[in-house]
Amino acid sequence: MILRMNATQMQNYIALFIASLLMAIILLIANYVQSGKSEPQVDAAVITKKTLHFRDLPNGAVGVISADNGQMIAQVEGQAGFVRGILRALARDRRIRQISSDDAFELVSRSDGRLTLIDLATNNRIDLESFGKDNAAEFAAFLTSAR
């Protein structure tokens, strides 16, 4: 069938093939250039912010201590899976980087509803609302404590 084409038909198919090839190359290059780039999300205004320390207590609970005045504002008792899980992940990263566990964390509530825990030692941040309202509420309680 290809052998029975006239010169004009052959040129049209060659032009179509070259145009398709160029388009594919352009798309591959554009994809390569854009890969790994993401638009940074602008943080909404801060509503409340607290600097906290989390300490293991002798009774097995985790003490939540205000960095401003050193007072314990809460105790996380029992499994408290979400709070302990987040803290374990951040503590593990500190151990890997050989960073002291004495540095504080910052808990930030924003006007768009996000609740973020920032490890001030590593600059890691976890948007807690991503794990659901109930889980985020466990950390939000630390912001509303009177101490």
Rank of each mutant, 00 (worst) to 15 (best):
L21A: 10
S35M: 10
I86Y: 04
R92D: 15
A61T: 08
G85H: 09
S38Q: 14
L22M: 12
L90F: 07
R114S: 12
T122R: 00
L57Y: 10
N59I: 01
N59T: 02
S130H: 07
S109Q: 12
A15H: 06
S35Y: 08
M23Y: 08
I26E: 07
A80R: 09
N59K: 10
D112S: 00
F17V: 05
P40T: 04
S35D: 04
S101Q: 12
R114C: 01
R95M: 13
N124V: 01
L90A: 06
G81N: 13
S38E: 13
V76P: 06
D56K: 12
Q75K: 13
D119C: 07
S130C: 04
Y32P: 02
A19Q: 12
T48P: 01
I86N: 01
K37V: 14
Q71N: 15
A24L: 14
V108T: 15
V33C: 01
F17L: 12
R55S: 03
V62N: 00
V46L: 04
D127W: 06
I18T: 09
G113P: 02
K50C: 04
R84D: 06
A91S: 14
R88C: 08
Q98R: 11
A19W: 08
Y13G: 06
I25H: 00
D127A: 15
I126D: 09
M72G: 03
L52Y: 03
M72N: 10
I14T: 03
A24C: 15
N31A: 15
I99H: 07
Y13H: 14
I14D: 00
E39H: 12
D134W: 04
I73Y: 02
L22A: 13
E39P: 02
D102A: 15
N69Q: 11
L28Y: 08
S109L: 14
P58D: 04
V83R: 00
P58A: 05
F131S: 11
T48R: 15
S66G: 07
I29A: 13
L22N: 05
D43R: 14
A80S: 13
T122C: 00
S66A: 14
N59L: 07
S130N: 11
I26W: 11
L22T: 05
G78T: 12
V83G: 03
M23G: 12
L21I: 04
I65W: 02
A67T: 11
A45E: 13
V64M: 03
D43Q: 15
S130P: 02
R88S: 14
R94I: 04
K49Q: 13
T8F: 06
V64W: 01
Q11K: 08
A30N: 10
S100L: 00
Q9F: 00
I29T: 08
A67D: 13
N69R: 13
S20F: 02
F54R: 03
T8H: 08
F82M: 10
R92P: 02
Q98L: 07
A44K: 00
M72A: 10
I86T: 11
E138G: 06
V46D: 02
A136C: 03
A137P: 08
F54V: 12
V83I: 12
N12R: 15
D134A: 11
D112F: 01
S101R: 10
A74P: 06
I126N: 12
T116P: 00
I18E: 11
A19H: 05
D56A: 10
L52F: 05
R92H: 15
I99R: 14
N12K: 11
L120G: 00
